[in-house]
Design a protein around this nucleic acid. Structure first.
Lengths: 227, 227, 227, 227
DNA sequence: AATGAATGAGAATTCATTCAT
DNA sequence: AATGAATGAATTCTCATTCAT
């Protein structure tokens, strides 16, 4: 029953001793799956342990309790994602409109592919009441950073004359620009890929609207470039 | 043994026997509060009963189980909300741009005031996996109707030459237009009024962006009206 | 498996619905046994439930938790015992020396017969740190009352000239008089009947010592009455 | 991986390798604290280890298990105490009444100062059921020796004519004489210093009672010596 | 219609103990 | 000698659900 031979003759991996540096991400990944599927209250420590291929006891060896595990999961998931995004943006050079379009398209692409992030966002939203620290964390580490980035692009574009001057003033513009991509993600989660508003169509319309609405009409006919 | 005559001769108010037509909404309202505060898995039937001032047993007298109660709560809550919005829109006459602006502003106003709807949305989102019917229901009763309305306005505006022709074609435009108002609502839930992106600023920037991006530039100087 | 027929053809009592007035003492009695045998920390709610022939859940229906159950057990056990003792003493008439002897002998007799009280005392002692309220309760409801009674007898005896005047003054005399009987009880618990100091011998020596030490030597040769 | 060289070149003190002769008392002392505070069942090996500044694993290196650790603790604590007491008594010379008074006062003094012994006694009492060997140990190593000592003094006093002849016969007298001091200790534990019967008063009354009750009335008026 | 006694299947968490390192 | 990763069983407590009253 322990390292026991299974029917296929294979050997069960047999709970090996592992360095914490290996075990920790293993547990975090398993816990993410569990939380994502069942929500915080619905998730069970036993199930998370089983997913990780360890026992409940070991989870408590690594994390003081369910709440801490949850926070650790969120942190471990959000941070690298965002760091990456920030790096990409910092490296960009070229016209601001192009950058803005690039950002929007990047957001939609992530939504289309990264199931993890969608789920995480849902979790944070759903549990924000019970974990105010989580909401604060999201605000500081995700939303504020994103708004700052977009806001910076807007101001830069306004300063260079590319965007209408209003772009720089409107404090509310950055969240308005980001919102459709996030909503696209949420609808995908709620309704599934088939039933939610079409991702590609939204992306195209979004880029189109934004560039039309922001870019200074220097000369007539300067349309928005196709996506 | 409990109700009836106490020693002092007074009558204990005691949970009155009530007609189902009175009891049901009482229970549903209490259950909404409970689900909203704790989520589906976190909610307890006993707590919902206590909020309603009845006992667990009675809830099972009215609803077969927790899942059914949840569905009933959601259904009972969504319907009236949308009917109202639809009526307002149908009655509108005037330029399409004005109508569109009115719709956007209406959405933001609802967000600012209607706690119920925010909660509902969060619940459906969080539990969509476990209650696919609920998501479908939301899609049919809320999202699709909203998209159809906005889409209609867009097509009408394009047909009348008020909006750029692209407005009519882009299937993705309607959701893009609605998204910021919904996200504003979500942020409010997650972060609280103080920390989330400013509602009024978003509304103004949103209207501004949309009108700038959509309205056909017939003559120079036709800017977006202030909110 | 529910009201199921056992092999002997008998019917398992099948958990009947009982009035709280019947169930409560049932549970308290079972819990007393469990706590007595295992101590507070060692006792298990499941075991207590099993002893009572009910499920864990029901215990939580009646008591909020382990600590509350424990307190309820102690309270339910100590109160009636002491009331009884107090009544007996109040009714006594005759020479104080006789009363004192009677009290001492009563104490030893209780020790010999009342397993409950021994256990209770041990429990309170062992858990006094964790349940200060329990210690306070013991102090108020048991020790103080007992000391007051004995002290009253001593003062009365001193006033009537039966006892040496010192008897009335010494605040410490009452506890000294009571202590041997209590210790006899404790030793019985710890060591079992066979190995602990002989109860009858202690009783005799105790009475002898006390009467010799207290009674005013009116005339030479007035020895202590035999036990 | 942990001890050795840190970046600053300093050496982390790190749990030194210690000779068993040094480690053992360290662990025993820590375990005593833990058992004293939490009782046997409530005590945790991990906590005991932490108190000793070592890890669980090491405790199992020194003791086979929790029960053995407990016994070792008790033994290590009781033995020296008692040896000391025995030595003191053996060295005494003078009138038996004086010796008896000295013993009684010694007992009360210990009670006032030695927290350890009180706790130990409580532990043995509380766990006697689960560790019959412990009770046997207490009986052999503590109670019997104490009774023998006191009994010896009583017989010697009776033989010399100092005490009433009954003192030598009564097998129950020795425990009766010891009991109040022990109870004083117990009450102190249960109720705290402030609320329990006054120690000094008990001591005085105890000595007074015993000497009055035991010492042969050679001539009328021979009162008890003051404490 | 309404109560609340009773159940049973988990839930999180703790902990003595083992053992690879 | 010493650590701490890992286990597994037990423990307290919760809760949806049933049903006698």
């Amino acid at each position: 029953m322990k390292p026991a031979e299974t029917e296929n003759g294979g050997t069960v991996p047999a709970r090996r001793r592992l360095a914490p540096a290996e075990r920790t991400p293993q547990i975090l990944a398993a816990a993410l799956e569990e939380f994502a599927e069942r929500g915080y209250a619905g998730a069970s420590m036993a199930a998370a342990a089983a997913r990780a291929g360890v026992t409940k006891g070991l989870i408590y060896h690594y994390f003081p309790g369910k709440a801490d595990l949850f926070k650790a999961v969120v942190r471990s998931c959000v941070q690298p994602v965002f760091n990456e995004a920030e790096r990409l943006i910092a490296a960009f050079e070229g016209p601001k409109a192009e950058l803005l379009r690039g950002l929007i398209e990047l957001a939609y692409d992530r939504v289309a592919t990264e199931r993890r992030e969608r789920i995480l966002f849902k979790l944070i939203l759903a549990e924000a009441d019970r974990f105010p620290e989580l909401a604060a964390f999201y605000n500081a580490e995700v939303l504020s950073r994103a708004l700052a980035l977009v806001g910076g692009v807007l101001r830069a574009g306004a300063a260079s004359g590319e965007f209408r001057p209003a772009a720089a003033e409107a404090a509310g513009l950055a969240p308005v620009l980001m919102a459709p991509a996030i909503m696209a993600s949420i609808w995908q989660m709620m309704l599934g890929e088939g039933r939610s508003p079409n991702l590609a169509a939204m992306r195209k319309a979004h880029v189109d609207l934004v560039l039309q609405g922001l870019v200074q009409a220097r000369a007539p006919g300067q349309g928005a470039p196709a996506a």
